[in-house]
Amino acid sequence: MEASVLLYGLVNSAVLMLTALGFSLTFGLSGVANFAHGSLYLAAGFIAWMILHYLGLPFMLSVVLTIIIVGILGAAMYRYILMPVRGIALSEVIATFAVGVAILEFFRWAGFVTYDFNLPSFVKGGVEIAGVDVDYQRVIIIGIGAGLAALLWYFSHKTKIGLALRGMAQDEYTALSLGIDSDWAAAISVGLGAALAAVAGLAILPLGLISINIGYDVLLIALAVTVLGGLESTTGLMVGSLILGFASVITANYLGPQWSEVVYLVAIVVVLAIKPSGLFGKFKELEERV
């Protein structure tokens, strides 16, 4: 019992971190709260399913194609929908949320509502760890989460584009005066966040059936993790995922699975009431805000 809570808590934390990663990254780099995050995650699932079933391409190729398509979709969303309202936070939220609902309801309209949609696992089968059965897909999710975290650190600290994006996030006008284009940087960061949503979707959706409502749940999870951990904080993202990951598994285990979703909502409400900047959020210094 306890070993299973520990193990599934860990797996669940990795799932949450992966789910929230793209949302957190886009917000940290460009300040855009992408409320279409859940829809992009779900769209990745359906797009991969379509590529597999209608085009019959090999699985790994479909995965790569899907990540690229969703990434481009995110960048295009910035260019054509967000750019005109750039800088008005509320309009950005409304615009991305509208795009998200449009994507989800498009799939509903197109008939993606039956129980026929699922993605294959990367590797079939499972393994027994400390007397608990875990399928390989869940182990892979932990690996992907850790791998992506390392990759993103490298990207943001060592590559030219990564440094430019971080520079733009810190001081737009200085970045501009060195030749970094702010719209280009924002489009890349929204596109990158969308691609990460796709990676999360492709890794996590094989655990069950794909249904439209997952899109809304994913947005809720991404919000809960980033609000709890603190926006713009990588440590916060990890700690937030761990807390919520274990909290929801423990809740499901002892109170019943129907309560686990409530954990996310309660977390959002409690954090906003007590410490709105989140556990690791930084209130910007006064001089940076003016």
Partner: peptide, 14 residues
């Protein structure tokens, strides 16, 4: 103004 969270060399490379 400098990029405060970046190291000196990262600033220069940027």
């Amino acid at each position: 103004p400098v990029f405060r969270d970046n190291t000196v060399e990262e600033n220069l490379r940027l």
